[in-house]
Design a protein around this nucleic acid. Structure first.
Lengths: 343, 343
DNA sequence: TTGCCAGTTTATAACGTTTCAAAAGTTTGA
DNA sequence: TCAAACTTTTGAAACGTTATAAACTGGCAA
């Protein structure tokens, strides 16, 4: 595997990775010329550019990330803050796949920093910004007045959040239309004869709790149905907790007969709680669940599901961030994903 | 003494991120001294080291990754190759959480590169190695004679695989004891009265297919039970495919009456297929499933499950890789995770 | 001839680190 | 007292890029 020692290899060792210097020596040009030729600078003669490109390709030259980053300040890194909390059952994975497919070929790497949002969501973000660890940030579990949004906007640091805020100043985000989800889910339950609809909601620190609530309330107004929002449990509660809670209410006289479950885990937990009390779905209660992983379609009897395409959200998040980082479009892009009903 | 007076204010602007130079000016020392003091070089006076450390801490100095990487060649990056294929239902996520918790505070970042193993598993690895994009690699879905293992070993590049190989040369890996899993699962099924045990296996390119098969065969030998390994479907098949297949065999006269499902999806698909033919678990068939996400415990009637702790695997993978990269322990570390029975 | 201009190329200086060899400063030994 | 032998500090070079300013080409007008 050792190559013969021709002239060039004396200065740039054979096993060594080729650098601009290698290309320069091979082409007889100066390092600066090669650099500019490869970046397609029109001040460099077209013929030269082609020649350099050819040589670079032949010896497999790949620019050094560290050197570039040091010189230009661009990290070519996108940072994803994942909250391990709720990333159970495929959410985080789907997001990741979407992000990376959209990032593919862009030259950007994705580094994943897991962090529990409820501890100090700002800390990792501040670290990234002040120490230039990435060119852009993506995060989930957005709050109505999210401190991360405030901080990043203030520092003019490119970011896209999964979830909206209530700040007046516009920023880029991708969100799922949870209001429509809850609205349609509630209507469906009423249609099936439910008289008291219960919605499991995320903790009230999170934006999408309100969206879900609005959707529910709209349906309540329009149909006059009763509703209930438990405060003993949230979407973040473990399946065990939700199960116990559901068993607890199952004996109540005026218990809910319809459930809106904005997540697969909560649906399974509730359904199971009722079943262990010998109450069955479709007879003693109804439910509409948000489907993410596709697992619900494999569970009988099938419940009504409304799909959220998280992988697509990932793609859109990445594309939006890329546009933002390129500096081309400076204005905010806001994408609201439409729920996909299966009924 | 070259009056550093305007030096300080001129060179280290207030908004700028502090560098070694900033600390040097503030302490009146040379940049080289500061660098060595911060790296705790014993050749630097203890008192100086303390003073420098204090200043650095006060002004929030954080070494520049790019500069360091350029100078030393260390990227401080760990690369995870994820196969989006099978990372459905929490596997990938659990792995990620485990990895990142173990990496926390080590200074290493985790970059995620998704890649379908069956396309050209070597390509991304080769890119990482030849272009020094990471200091170490972790990957999943290991094959008996995995080309990635061969390549990385050959290039003396630190890596830990999730899954074993059959190479004679030892390398570090973390694996789940799938043989014991299958063995115990089969025994359990026999114990419940099954006479024909069917195991859903991964594609034969993957190491753990053999392990599962050995476990099954051992049980077959010891108990004399019949067995069946379908070749129409694998663990990688979609839930729909598995469901259809199971419906297909449900009518057969001598169909399997016990199923080993080394994954949650396959179990749900099979169970559901039978149920839609009005056959119920515990009566018309039995099953033992591998549980990963904890979702199975929320499904009634509960099936026998054997747990695989993927998050822990992630932690061990990261710790092993850290040790490898540190150069301290050069010899391979091999960890076999024990199955956790719930029956 | 000289000068100038457009079209190309190049030398040089950073970016922030680490490391090597060498220079200070301080003790020790005779 | 002076030099040898430490201890501690430092200047300079290098890692691979890119941006800036300057330096080459001809060619062509004066």
């Amino acid at each position: 595997m050792r190559s013969p020692v021709h002239g060039v290899s004396a200065t740039s060792g054979s096993a060594d990775r080729p650098t601009l210097k290698t290309v320069a020596e091979l082409s007889g040009l100066a390092v600066a010329t090669v650099s500019r030729a490869l970046s397609n600078d029109p001040k460099i003669a077209e013929s030269t550019r082609q020649r350099v490109a050819k040589i670079a390709r032949e010896i497999g030259y790949v620019p050094d990330r560290a050197a570039r980053r040091l010189r230009t300040g661009k990290t070519m890194v996108v940072s994803l803050m994942l909250d391990p909390h709720f990333e159970i059952l495929g959410f985080g994975n789907a997001l990741l796949v979407g992000l990376t497919t959209a990032l593919e070929g862009s030259g950007y790497s994705l580094v994943v920093t897991p962090h529990f949002t409820d501890v100090d969501s700002l800390m990792p973000i501040r670290h990234i910004v002040t120490n230039r660890q990435a060119d852009g940030v993506i995060f989930t579990r957005t709050a109505p007045f999210d401190e991360r949004v405030r901080f990043l906007t203030e520092h003019k640091f490119p970011f896209v959040s999964h979830g909206r805020t209530e700040f007046s100043e516009a920023h880029s985000w991708v969100d799922y239309d949870n209001e429509t989800f809850a609205f349609r889910a509630a209507l469906r339950l009423v249609e099936k004869g439910c008289r008291n609809i219960c919605a499991i909601l995320p903790p009230d620190t999170l934006s999408f709790r309100q969206h879900l609530r609005y959707g529910l309330m709209r349906a309540v107004r329009e149909t006059g149905v009763d509703y209930h929002i438990p405060d003993a449990i949230t979407l973040d509660s473990s399946m065990d907790e939700i199960n116990r809670w559901a068993q607890g209410i199952s004996g109540e006289r005026y218990r809910p007969d319809g459930f809106i479950c904005p997540g697969e885990a909560s649906y399974l937990a509730i359904r199971n709680a009722f079943r262990s009390r010998n109450m069955s779905e479709g007879k003693d209660f109804h439910a509409v669940a948000k489907s993410i992983s596709g697992i619900l379609s494999q569970i009988e009897p099938a419940t009504d599901a409304i799909h959220e395409d998280v992988e697509d959200a990932g793609r859109v998040l990445a594309e939006t961030l890329l546009a933002l980082m390129s500096g081309r479009s400076t204005d905010a892009r806001q994408v609201l994903q439409a729920p996909k009903m299966t009924f």
